[in-house]
Amino acid sequence: MVDVRGVHKSYGPLEVLRGVDLRVGAGEVTVVLGPSGSGKSTLLRAVNHLEKIDRGFVAIDGELIGYRRSGDRLHELKEREILRQRSRIGFVFQSFNLFPHLTVRQNVAEAPLSAQRRPREEVEELTAELLDRVGLRDKADAYPRQLSGGQQQRVAIARALALRPKVILFDEPTSALDPELVGEVLEVMRDLARSGTTMIVVTHEIGFAREVADTVVFLDEGLIVEQGPPAQVLDAPRHERTRAFLGKVL
């Protein structure tokens, strides 16, 4: 479903991604671990072309993201086409990024109505189903400022699901939450994993990775140092850098 090949990204002289290769199958959950500054968020943002990569490519379900191929060269798509592609890629940010002037119901419905131009009746029905799924149907007419951080993040997940995405990207979705609110968000994510949603999750929640991930990736200094099943990467890491990192976070 997701194919990342030889991806490089630099900001001036700073090389943030140094040739990343990553494949995620349909219905799989990949958890990306790594220290701050390792390139985790940049990798996620490259997947939906929020970051333009310098070399390599990203494809989702066989379609190049952000570019079209002409011979042996890649040419960036027009913004309209890029937005069309993004409308099939869910993204859940650290800081929720809800529209403060819209209600919960309107936040979830906005993208299907405006970006995908789906019928209003269909979107209203879907919005109710999704809010029920994340346990917030009773908050449909509330505004983000009236919600806890955990509730806001659950709305953000419902908003991502409303796009009917091929994959959902999570960028440290619990890092901005009080510890007591983390569990409610992780439970929604566990439900998504059980339902076969394709997910790439950047997180420091090792317990979640151990329980839910099909593959755990350890990224350091812009390179994938180690990847494999949770039992291998988390319990018997082969690389010294992975062992050092886990020794600090476990």
Rank of each mutant, 00 (worst) to 15 (best):
I89A: 05
M189L: 13
V216Y: 14
L250C: 04
K40V: 00
E15D: 05
P35E: 06
K166T: 15
L147D: 02
L77G: 02
V20E: 00
L219G: 08
V233A: 01
L17C: 05
V212M: 08
V233L: 01
R68S: 02
E129C: 11
A115H: 08
R86K: 12
V24A: 02
I168D: 06
A115R: 10
G196A: 14
A244T: 12
T174E: 02
L147P: 05
P144Q: 06
F218V: 06
H239K: 15
V134G: 14
D72S: 09
R23E: 11
R159C: 06
M1S: 12
I200F: 09
D3G: 00
E211C: 09
V7H: 00
V20N: 00
F96L: 08
R105H: 10
V32T: 04
T127E: 01
I168L: 09
L181N: 15
E187K: 13
A140W: 03
T127V: 15
E81Y: 05
R133L: 14
L246R: 09
S70L: 13
M189T: 13
V47H: 00
G27F: 00
V212C: 07
V31K: 04
R86H: 09
T197A: 14
Q85V: 13
G90T: 05
E122P: 05
Q94N: 09
V185F: 09
D191R: 15
V201G: 15
T197M: 15
Q94T: 10
E125H: 07
I65E: 07
G12F: 01
G149I: 00
G222M: 01
G39H: 06
D21F: 01
H75F: 08
D3F: 13
H239D: 15
V188G: 12
R210P: 07
A158F: 03
L83G: 04
V216P: 14
D21H: 03
F93R: 10
I65S: 08
V201I: 13
T103L: 11
K40G: 10
V47N: 01
T198N: 05
F57W: 15
V202L: 13
E51F: 01
H49L: 04
I65Y: 07
E81C: 06
R117A: 11
V233W: 09
L219I: 03
R159I: 12
P112R: 00
E63T: 02
M189K: 11
F96G: 03
D235C: 03
L113Q: 11
E15F: 01
A176N: 03
L147V: 00
Q232C: 02
K248W: 10
R55L: 09
R154K: 09
R133Q: 11
A46K: 01
V202W: 11
L44D: 03
L219P: 04
P165M: 06
R86N: 08
V216H: 12
L130N: 11
G247C: 04
T215N: 14
F208W: 01
R86W: 11
R55H: 10
K9Y: 12
R55G: 05
F218L: 03
E124G: 12
D3V: 14
L44K: 07
F245H: 11
A142D: 11
V201W: 15
R241Q: 02
A160E: 08
R105I: 10
